[in-house]
Structure formats: C-alpha cells, structure tokens
Design a protein around this nucleic acid. Sequence first.
DNA 1: ACCATACTTGACCGGCCGGTCAATGAAAGG
DNA 2: CCTTTCATTGACCGGCCGGTCAAGTATGGT
Lengths: 206, 206
Amino acid sequence: MAQTFSDLSQEKQQQILDAAAEVFAEEDYKRASTDDIAARAGISKGLLFYYFKNKQSLYLYVADHLRSLVERHLERGALAEITDFFDMLDYGAEEKLRLFRRQPWILNLALRLYYVTDKEVASPLRRRFMEMLEEMWGAYFSHIDREKFRPEVEPRLVLDQLIYLIDGYLHQQMMRGVKIDMDALMAEYAVWRDMLRQYAYKEEYQ
Amino acid sequence: MAQTFSDLSQEKQQQILDAAAEVFAEEDYKRASTDDIAARAGISKGLLFYYFKNKQSLYLYVADHLRSLVERHLERGALAEITDFFDMLDYGAEEKLRLFRRQPWILNLALRLYYVTDKEVASPLRRRFMEMLEEMWGAYFSHIDREKFRPEVEPRLVLDQLIYLIDGYLHQQMMRGVKIDMDALMAEYAVWRDMLRQYAYKEEYQ
DNA sequence: ACCATACTTGACCGGCCGGTCAATGAAAGG
DNA sequence: CCTTTCATTGACCGGCCGGTCAAGTATGGT
C-alpha cells in the first residue's frame, strides 16, 4: 500500500483489513473479489484501489499483517530461560493454541494463506513463510541445550520433522473437510513430541 | 464424460487426456483454460464440450484417470507375501519411486491435485483421496503382522504419521519452490521409517 | 467566500473464459 | 445419389472482475 493507507484512522484501517481478511479466508485468491471486499468494508472499490496498488499488494499486506500479529503475540514471555528443546516446543505450542482459541479466524486465514497455490501470490507468500521460520528458529532455538541430543541428530532437522507432521496433519484434516480441532491437534502433538524426543535425545535425557 | 468419449480411439483419448493433464498440472483449476486444453489437444473447444459436460467433469475425469493409473501400477507384485509393516512401506515406496521416475509428469499432476483448494473441485477430489487411502490400507496392510507392535501403538496411526511426514515434506519443498527430488525424499523417508519403527515396534523386533 | 487540495464515488472498460449453437462436413445406409 | 445421422467447427454470448477515471464532495487555509 501507499502511505495513504497508514495515514487512516485505526478504525478505518481495521475495517478494511477485516473485510479483506474475511473474504480472503473464504475464497481462494482468484475467486476473492475486490468488489466484495470493498462492499464489506463499506467503501467504494475506487477507494480500495486508491489505498492499494492492486489486489496482489492488498493480499500481501493482509499476509504481512497476519504475520506481525502472530509474531507480536509470541514475542513476550521468558524465552531465554527455556533451554530444553522440547520444553520450548511445548511453550510455542501453548502460545499458539491460546492465540487460535481466542481468535479462530486467524487460524482459518493462516491455513488459506499457507496452502495457496495461485501463481500470482504463491511465491511471495512462501518467501514470507520461510523468513518467519528462520526468525523463529533464531529467536527460539539458537540457545537450546544441544548436549542432550544424540550426536548424530541435528536439532534443526527434528524441528523440521515436527513441522512436517503438523503441516501434513492440518492438510489431511482440511481434506477431510472438518474444522480444525485444536484439542485434537494438541493431543497428536503430544504423541509426536514424545516420539521425537525418544528419537533425538540420549538415553539419560529421555 | 458421456460414453461418446470412451468410444473414441485410444490415441484420440490419450491426446485429449494428455493435453488436459498438461494444462491442469501447470495452472490451478480456475486459471487452467479449456481453450488452452482444446488447442493443445488439436481439437475445437466445441468438441471438448461435446465429450465432457463441463470443465469440472473433465477435471475429475483426469483425476480418476491418474488414480487408476497409479492403482494399476501398484496392484501387481506379491503383496500377500509381505507381512512386516515396514517392509510393506518400503515396497510401496520403491514402487512409487519407480513410477515417478519413469513418468515425472505424474508426480507434478498428482501434487497439483493433492493441494487443490478451489471450491469447485476440492471436495470431490478429497473424497477420492480418502477412498484411495482406505483401499490401500485394506489391500496392503490388512494382513500385516501386528504382533510386532507395542500393544499401545495402533498400526494405522503409524501409517497416518508417515503420511503426515511425507505430506508436510512435499508441501514444504513446494513452498521452497524447488522441483521435488525423489532421491532426497527417499533419504528422508528412510530416516522417518527407522524412527517410526523404533517408536512402534517392541524391543525384540527393532 | 473562494480556491486548492485531498478524498471518495460508481459507472465503465476490457480481458478472460466457460459454455452454447447454428452451420458445415463426413459417413453410412439404402 | 440422396438423406439421415453423427462428428466437428469456431464465432459468439454473458458473466465476472481487476483496474481506471472523470466527476463530485469534503476540508482547510487565506
């Protein structure tokens, strides 16, 4: 967007952002219409394109907004105190659980963005996800205790595996057409975590 | 399709199917145009719609074709002789590897179909995937040796976990924008399999 | 009151594309 | 041949939608 948008009052920005987030969560990129967004935001389409160069940049703006919202939520807390890899995972999981429970629309939108395949936005979005992942790795896991790991197991790969599991699980649930049940996910997560711990940690740290 | 299509000569059918598969592999459902398909198949658009009721049914026909192609490929072989769960996994993995190596376009199309989010086709497609999964479970794993499993571990859930891992891995690779490297995938698979075996099998069968 | 600037509108354009249909051609049968 | 049937064409329609723009309205400074 141009700075015209950021000059708007907080409520006006929110209003437009909410409308866009809503529509983009309901339909894939191609089918989500700017007419629809403008109507729900209570403004004319012309004005929408006065704030945003085009649909794509609006989409990416919404994505960035979501990202900063999630990051802000995870930032507080005493990260530095946790040195155990799996305790850290638990901490992150709990935090995200709370976030998604409080505002379920965030999860819906995030899933939609996460599984976008549309040419026009897929590649910028995946760059964002990769960045986020790297940031997270740096912030959360750079100072974990590697001593507990078996020498042949690289911590980062363990995290990757957990991400694969969650990713695949969510995708399968979406395929089944069911709403994501965070409690069920957390139960699965607990099993995966224990399995991964058994695989990654030395005997004495199990 | 109507039976008019199945009455066509094998080559003509193939020609059209190939064109459709090609286009559907390149673009998402909405962007893949029937004009394009007709042109690549060397027929008029009118004729395409003479054979297929609409774009959606063509899409699903291509999906069914792919499914039967994969199923046919996996059917032969001495399945009944394998009773070890993880040997069976290896067998399935090897077979699929060979298939995808010989005809890489199959993998591309399959991935596209697997990650479709378009309203108009997502739900019929996911029904097909679920059916396929159940069939596979019945055909491959109904007679495996459950004795080797720890009592608290349900074999089906172990398979699900492997599927999650593969699903997530493929998705992440796609996000990274790289072509899927089957050798890398097989290397990862080997790690996952060993981890899952350690988790699922009793000590004496490790 | 006036003017300049910024904000806001909605009608409109043009491109894309799924799907239709009247017309044409090709076979087949008598 | 002639006619009936089927296969095939491509021009065309209509809907959708991203993006534009001339015109209108509010705002604030002088």
